[in-house]
Simulated assay, not measured.
Amino acid sequence: MRILILGTGGMANTHAKNFAEIEGVELVGGVDVDPARVEAFNSTHGIQRGFGSLDAALAWGEFDAIANVTPDSIHHPTTMAALNAGKHVFCEKPLATDHTKAMEMTETAERLGLVNMVNLTYRNVAQLQKARDIVQSGQIGKVKHFEASYLQSWLVSKAWGDWRTESQWLWRLSKKHGSNGVLGDIGVHILDFAAYGAGSDFSKVFCRLETFDKAEGNKIGEYDLDANDSFAMTAQLENGALGVIHATRWATGHFNELRLRVYGDHGSVEVQHRHDWSKLFTCLGDDIETGVWTEVAVDPVPTNYMRFVEAVRTGRNLEPSFRHATNIQKVLDIATVTDRDKYEHKV
C-alpha cells in the first residue's frame, strides 16, 4: 500500500512514523507548498518524492491513499480533489470547518466507494475502548448521566512553546486563519470521546463560548485573537442520558488531559487520559454500595493508522468514518448557534 503525506507540519511526523511502522506500507511522497519543509520532512522519513502541490502529486498518481495533514480550512478542497482522483483518504480532524462541507466530502467518498476515515486520535486509547465495551454490555445498566472535559494549559504555560511568538499556536486563536477556536480544535475530540464512551450520539445541545483578552487589542502581528478559548456545554444523548462537557486552554496545571465519567443505574465507568498515561476505573456490583472504584487493566488496541490500512486492504470502511465526523461537525455547528441564540437546539 502506497501512501502520500499531504502537509508536512508537526502532526505529519506522527502520521509518517505510524504508517511506516505498518508492514507492507510505503511512504511514497510528501507534499507542501514550502520546498524547504517538504525536503526536510522527506529526508527525515526516507521519502523519495516531494511535491509543491497536491495537483502535481495527483498528476504523478503513483499512490493508493493520502494522509491529509493540512490546516483545517484546507481539508475540504484537498480531500475533494483526492477523492475525485480515486484516492482513499485518511484526514486529520476536524473533517471540515462546517457541516455542509463535511457532508459533501462524506457523500462523495461514499458515492465513489472509497475508504474514508478521520484521525480522531483518542480512539487509540485502549481504556476508552474498554469503557465503551462495558457500557454497551449493559454492566452499568441504563446510562443516566455523563460528564466529560478536555483541559489544556498552553495559554498559561510555555511547556509546549510560547504561543505569543509561534505561528503553530497563533493560528489556532485566529478566525481568519481558519480556527474555530477551542470548540473546533479540541471540542471535536471531547465530543467524540464522550459520545463514543457513553455509547450514544447527541440529540440536544446548549453551549456557551468565551474568548478572553490575551494581548493588547487582542492582536499579535497578522493574527486577530478572536477565536474562543473555552466552552461549556450541556447535552443530551439519544439514549436519554444528560451530561456536561467543557474544554479550555486555560486549565493551569493540565497539559493535555481528557476525562469521561458515565453513570448508569447499576454502575459507573471513568476514563482518565493524559499525555503520559491512561487509566480506567469502574464502580460495579456490590461496590456501588460502598463507593469503591477499581482500576481495570486493558490490552492495547489497533491504532487509527492500522485500521485505515486494514480498511484499504479489505475494501471495508472502518470507524471513525467521514460520516461519523460529519455528525460531530453538526453538533459543533449547532453549539455555535446556541451560543448566539442562548437556548438549546436539537441536533
Rank of each mutant, 00 (worst) to 15 (best):
R2N: 15
A215D: 12
N13M: 02
D133S: 09
G161L: 03
L112P: 03
A232S: 15
G285C: 10
K17C: 05
F212M: 03
K204S: 07
G50T: 12
P71Q: 02
L237W: 02
S321R: 00
T290D: 06
T108E: 10
G264E: 07
N116V: 00
T338E: 10
R259W: 05
L332W: 05
G240D: 13
G24V: 06
F51L: 05
F90P: 00
D213P: 06
M80I: 14
A195I: 02
I134H: 12
D226Y: 09
M1E: 10
D201Y: 11
H88Q: 15
T97Y: 10
D226S: 08
D192T: 04
R172Y: 09
D339S: 13
G61I: 05
Q139L: 11
M80D: 11
G199W: 09
D224W: 10
G187W: 09
E319F: 00
A297F: 12
K214W: 01
L114Y: 15
F63C: 05
D201I: 11
D339M: 09
G113K: 00
L170E: 12
I190D: 06
S268L: 07
R259N: 05
N327A: 14
D226C: 04
K204T: 11
I22V: 04
T314K: 01
K342E: 15
D265S: 13
V33W: 01
I288S: 04
R323M: 03
G184S: 03
F19E: 05
S53T: 07
I140S: 10
A57R: 06
L332T: 12
D213F: 01
R164V: 08
N116R: 00
G197M: 10
E110N: 01
G253E: 09
L209Y: 08
Q272M: 04
I74V: 04
F51D: 09
L173Q: 11
N42W: 03
K175S: 07
